[in-house]
């Protein structure tokens, strides 16, 4: 065997090992170009997760960020390239704007959002003692508007609501998701869990079919995530705008050819409480960038 062909074989072997993620990327000293396949590009990055808390169905928790391409991750990491960041300025203006019959703005009660809203979205959905049920961040914003500001609620998917949810979510960026699941909220967690594992639609699939059993695997050219919600509202490259969580969940439901839940419905609420609890400890990334 000539030295040349031996080298070629060696590089082929290490290339294959690299492509399947058996070797740390620092070993990649071969000068051959990796094959241009989706699998090769995906394998070039080893997803970094955090150890799952006790009782989790996962061993390791991965943010959806970990399953995205280098370019998409770079876009999220750069605050001046991440288009989701465009929500912050308009929402900050809205925060101090008086609206409704009560003559109040968000800041009338909550003061400086950069201080008072820190950590808030990491704990949502949260139990609301007055309503005797959990509420999502978007719902809470609208309750503040209708009950305290005496203003019109913002519509689902409206720029105002999504921008405000992004602005509040952004104040918790980097903080670990921590949703309370015991106490009065526990029946909602149980109901959400039941919905999570319930097969629905013409394709007869549950959330778990993709996001628990096959995360990290390909669905056509795309990579499935664990279906974590720590990045919402998130900027989708496909939609080219910020997408609230319930819109994304509706998308999943349409994909399995089920009838999507109604926005702000009890079923969504239960599901969101449960999904959030599956991401316990993941950092809030709002606004994330996803494909």
């Amino acid at each position: 065997m000539s030295a040349g062909s031996f080298r070629a074989m060696l590089s082929a072997v290490s290339l294959a090992a690299w492509a399947f993620g058996f070797m740390p990327s620092s070993v990649l000293a071969v000068d051959a170009k990796p094959p241009v396949t989706a699998a090769a590009t995906a394998a070039a990055y080893v997803p970094k997760g955090i150890p799952a808390p006790p009782g989790s169905v996962f061993k390791t928790l991965f943010s959806g960020y970990q399953f995205r391409s280098k370019d998409t991750r770079a876009m999220q990491d750069d605050d001046f390239s991440n288009p989701g960041m465009l929500a912050l300025d308009p929402a900050a203006t809205e925060w101090t704007k008086v609206d409704g019959a009560a003559g109040k703005s968000c800041s009338s009660c909550h003061g400086d959002a950069t201080k008072t809203m820190k950590g808030v979205s990491a704990t949502m959905p949260k139990w609301n003692a007055r309503l005797k049920r959990p509420v999502t961040l978007e719902e809470q914003i609208n309750f503040c508007r209708t009950d305290y500001m005496k203003a019109q609620p913002w519509k689902f998917k409206s720029d105002d609501l999504t921008n405000m949810a992004t602005y509040i979510g952004y104040q918790s960026r980097g903080m670990p998701v921590h949703v309370k699941v015991d106490g009065p909220i526990s029946p909602w967690v149980a109901r959400g869990k039941a919905l999570y594992y319930r097969r629905i639609g013409q394709l007869d699939m549950s959330c778990a079919n993709c996001h628990e059993k096959y995360y990290g695997k390909h669905i056509r050219a795309d990579t499935l995530s664990q279906g974590q919600t720590n990045d919402f509202p998130t900027y989708r490259l496909k939609a080219q705008h910020l997408v609230p969580l319930e819109q994304r969940l509706q998308g999943c439901m349409k994909n399995v050819r089920a009838r999507p839940y109604k926005p702000f419905s009890k079923r969504f609420l239960a599901l969101e409480v449960y999904i959030a609890s599956r991401g316990e400890g993941l950092p809030v990334e709002t606004p994330g960038v996803r494909n």
Binding site: F80, S81, P83, M85, L86, Q240
Partner: peptide
């Protein structure tokens, strides 16, 4: 320099 502006394009 980096710039970003909201527009539907």
């Amino acid at each position: 320099i980096k710039t970003l502006i909201e527009h539907p394009m």
